[in-house]
Each structure stands twice: as C-alpha cells, then as structure tokens.
Design a protein around this nucleic acid. Structure first.
Lengths: 301, 301
DNA sequence: GCAAAAGTGTTTCGTTTACACCCATGC
DNA sequence: GCATGGGTGTAAACGAAACACTTTTGC
C-alpha cells in the first residue's frame, strides 16, 4: 500500500517527555532505540501519528506500547519542525509532557528498554530530544506557577520536605523550610491527613515490586546499590509509625490548579478608567538586564 | 508531480495569530477566505508549510504573502491536530502568535482581504480558529507574567495610561492608576523620554497614511466614523505639546523580558537542606476551588 | 463651560524574609 | 553517639492595597 499526494508532506510523530519524582530528584523516562537512526541512543517514547488519532492520542498510544505506562493526562509542548531534525527525512514531532506519580508506574514489565534517568544524569539523546527536554523543563517551570501540577508527581500523601524538594527540583531553587511550609499551608490547598493513607499501600506494594522498581528507578544494577527507602526518602512501611507524631497533610486539589498568587500581584491593583494623554515611555535594555540579574531570574534550564 | 509515501501523512499548515493594540483595545488580524472551505469566513493568515522551511518560516512567509506584514518574531502556540479540523482531509496546523506595533504595520496595500478586528468583535472563524484564538490569548496572558512582551504592542514611546490599558486588555483586569504606575516604575524597566520621539514621526506618518489606517483599523467604512486620534487616544500631532508638561518614559527592554516578580515570590524563600520523614499530605478539591474563587483566578479566556 | 481623563502621595495592611534551637532517626 | 534531617515561631522590612482632589483636554 502506498499513499500519493499532490504536494510533499512531512511525516508527523508524537513524542512524550515523562517526568517522575523519586522523593529527591526529578527523573525522565527514556527508551533505548533499537533501530537506526540513533540506534542504541536514548530517546523519548513516541512514534508516528496515525491518521485516525490526534497527536495526543498518538503520544499516549506510543507511550503505552513502548513503556507500558497507561496514563491519560499529557500536555502539549509544541511542534518541533527543524528541517533536518530527522535523518530519515522530513519529520515534524509534536511533543508532550506527562507527570506520573510513583503509584502510577506499573508497567515495568513490558518495557525492557525503558529506564528512568535523573535529570542531571540524562545522556545525550537522539534527534533533537535534548532540545525538547529543555523546552519541556521550561514549560514545566512556567506551568507550576499557575497550576498545582507538582502534586501530579507525588502520591496522595506526602511529607512537607518531599513537596519542598519537588518544588526545588522543578524550579532549581532552594527554599527555607519554615517559610516554604508556611506559604504552602497558607494557600489552604493542603490538608492534614491523620495517618498512612490508602495509596501508601499501593505505594509500598509497588516499591517492593521489582518490575516497578526497575521501571521507576532504573536498572537492576542500580537497584542493588540503593535501598528503596533510601531512594524514596519515606517510611519503610506503614507500621513504622503507630503513633502519628505530628500528623500529616493532604493537598486540596482538583484537576488543575495551584497557587496563582502570581496573577494576584497584577490583578489586585484594582479599578481605573480610560485615559487620553501624558508622559511617554520607551525601553532601556541595560536597566532590564540589571533587573533580571538582581532578581536572579532565569527561566532557562 | 506527485509524492508517494508508504504510510499516509497529514498535510501540515502554519497559521499566525497577529495581535495589535490601538491604544484602547486588543485586536487581531484576520483575512477573509476566498476559497472553499469556509469561503467568505474570516481566518488567521497561514498556509501549508514547504518542505524546506520550518513551521515558523512557513508562518512568516504566509503572513507576508497574505497580509504584507513583514515581521520576524513569532511564538509557537502549539499544534492543532483534531482529526476532523479541516474538511479537506487530515491537516495539522502549527499555530503561532505575533505581536506587532502600530509602527510596524505598513503592508496595508497588498492585503485587501486583511482586516483588524477588536477582540470583542471577532466573528466566528473558519476551521478551529476560534479555539486557536482562545489558546493564543491564554498563552499571551501567561507569557506576560514572565516577559515584557506587552511592549511589543506599543511604539517606542507611549503613555502610562496606554500601557495600563494594554495590560488590562491582555489580563482582563482593571488596575488602580496610581498603583499601576508605581509598580511599573519600580521595576526600573521604564525610563522617561523628554519629548516626542523619532518613532512618533513614523507613527504620525503612518496613521495619516490611508493604507496603514485601513490595514490597522479596519475598513474604510469604519474609518469614516472614527478619527484616528479618537481611536488611538494619543496626541493628534507632535506640535500639540510644545512644552512637555510632565515628561515621558521609555521602556528598558531587551529581546525578551519582563517583570519576573512572580518567580521571586517562590525563589526568595531561600535556602534549606534535605529531609527524611514527618507529616503527610493529600489533596482537597473544595478548598482549592474556594481558593481559586477567593483570588479571582481565571486563566481561561 | 462641562465632562472625561490625567496627574499626584500617603497610610494601612499583609506578605516576605531572616533566623536558631531542640528532637528524632539512621548509621 | 553522632550526623543528618525534621520540626517549630517571631520580628523587621518590604511590597501591595486603598484612597481624593486638582489640573488638563476635548467638545
């Protein structure tokens, strides 16, 4: 079978950057390519889009096929369209990112070539996937200012230090413990949880499942050197804490949101009426550069 | 000539949402479709991507061809891949947005079918362009929190009320005049300009150019009902203000940025160290919804 | 002359920041 | 028992919010 068109068309692929968090550092899920081009290189799960599916559906299908990961929420990063980005010819890639909880990672078995890499430890990737990863990270950083997506990377219940490390990992910044907690609690989107929660059982069940551990933490070799608890920085098991020393919290979340205190700073300079004339303005690069520096502002990854 | 592939491929188009600002309201540039499908409907400038150009280059080329607008900075919105979005068959659109200054709008002549529409006044668009417009607006709102892109919509010099109306239009919020000005000046990215600046001459030249006026403000019919000054809310001409009553400002900008005070609020909760165990947390939808409401937070357009 | 818009400062309030000691756990 | 991390509160500084009257312009 073949398909003929009047004008040339690029192939369209869908790739998915999957982020995970092990309680200490951000990770991405990569697969080792079995075919040329870039055979033996690591790359994001993905593949060509079918004609009867959206790019999103294609990305989810490929993700399931290649890593066994069965999720349903991904966010589009954008299309990558450099003419030479694929040696096989003109391929446009539509990339997505996904955030998965430890408890969601179940598909270790079908994914022999899939492995989690700490962000600091990602090898050189195939195609322009290094670039795509940078873009994904940038977008994640922006998004976390508007929506509570961080919680997508944590199980239902988690400790304040875990949450803090997650935010630090995503934003590339360190926070003062007391101030971080205060701010988080002030938002009112956290609630205390009395004891070990249901999904911790899932969590434990899965961390003690070798397939899960392999798929989430890496190869078996790595697993031998570190204990699950060490990696996860969490109670070894539920029984650990019969008397809840200080209690726990739970996040108040819905399908999206988080801490839009950003917008507040603009939105709350309230009310005014239209105008007509007056002083004029224009831009000064130096001041702006200094301003960025003074505020230690870097969105770049 | 024809092109044959082993697997079916979608066509790939590049479309461009062009925003403008007339001193009072945000506008978008649309073209009236001359062919089916959606003949007679308004749509964004755009067309099929060539094989030797990136989507971005394609969008810029089509924009130039269809509207005469010759710009070079556009930002990708994303790919739109609904299976049925184009009745002609499977077409994936990669969409961009552009911000143009009044002074940049010069190509009125080649663009008979191109017209500016106030955002509130945009007709039903062809394809899924309504949806694309909403996405563009969302992204613009997010972006303006991180980068001083607003100034891309203003000429080199502008009044504080103009700037304020722009921010209000983009964010859909009203600000207190005194607080807005204070905040803007505090950032240090504005500088005062002593008198009418060079580009105001360009500005005047162009506002008094019928082709410009038509292309920027709309059809000739509309032009008859409103004066340029009324529309632009600005001095009729340079001579108007021989003695600069209160002086003017200029923006300190470079290729990107603006007011990253958002991140600051997180970044500045400085320093801390890793952790081990303690209270646990999970999410509560109700509280979060209330929180969003209390803070009047809506990113949606 | 009148209506609409521009210009201008200060006070209150809330948020952000900075900071140190003791306790629990794991090794 | 020692090192690492967890837990906790307060005071000072800063930024945001609220607010009214006078002057200028356009009609």
């Amino acid at each position: 079978m073949s398909y003929t068109y009047e004008y040339p068309r690029p192939a369209v692929a869908a790739d998915c950057v999957v982020f995970g968090f092990n309680g200490r550092e951000l990770q991405v899920l990569l697969i080792e390519r079995g075919n040329e081009p870039f055979k033996g290189c690591w790359a994001f799960p993905g593949g060509f889009m079918n004609m009867d599916e959206t790019a999103e559906q294609g990305a989810l299908r490929e993700l399931q096929e290649e890593t066994g990961l069965d999720i349903n929420r991904i966010k589009q990063l954008g299309a990558f369209t450099e003419v030479q980005r694929d040696p096989r010819g003109r391929v446009v890639s539509i990339a997505f990112y996904a955030l998965v909880r430890p408890a969601e990672v179940t598909g270790g078995d079908d994914a022999k070539e899939a492995r989690w890499f700490a962000l600091d430890d990602v090898p050189r990737l195939a195609f322009d996937h290094d670039y795509i990863l940078r873009k994904a990270m940038q977008l994640l950083r922006m998004d976390i200012h508007f929506e509570p997506i961080g919680f997508e990377l944590l199980n239902k219940s988690f400790t304040m230090p875990e949450l803090q490390r997650l935010y630090e990992a995503i934003l590339g910044v360190r926070f003062d413990r007391r101030n971080f907690e205060k701010k988080m609690l002030q938002t009112g989107i956290l609630q205390m949880v009395e004891d070990e929660e249901d999904d911790d059982e899932l969590f434990d069940q899965q961390t003690s499942n070798p397939a899960f551990a392999r798929s989430f933490f890496g190869t078996q070799n790595e697993m031998q050197t570190k204990s699950i608890d060490e990696l996860f920085d969490s109670e070894p098991t539920p029984k650990m804490q019969p008397e809840v020393t200080s209690g726990s919290y739970a996040i108040c979340r819905d399908e999206e949101g988080f801490i839009p205190h950003i917008m507040k700073s603009w939105e709350s300079i309230a009310h005014r009426k239209p105008g007509r004339k007056g002083r004029k303005f224009s831009f000064n690069k130096e001041n702006y550069d200094r301003f960025k520096q003074d505020n230690n502002f870097k969105l770049e990854f």
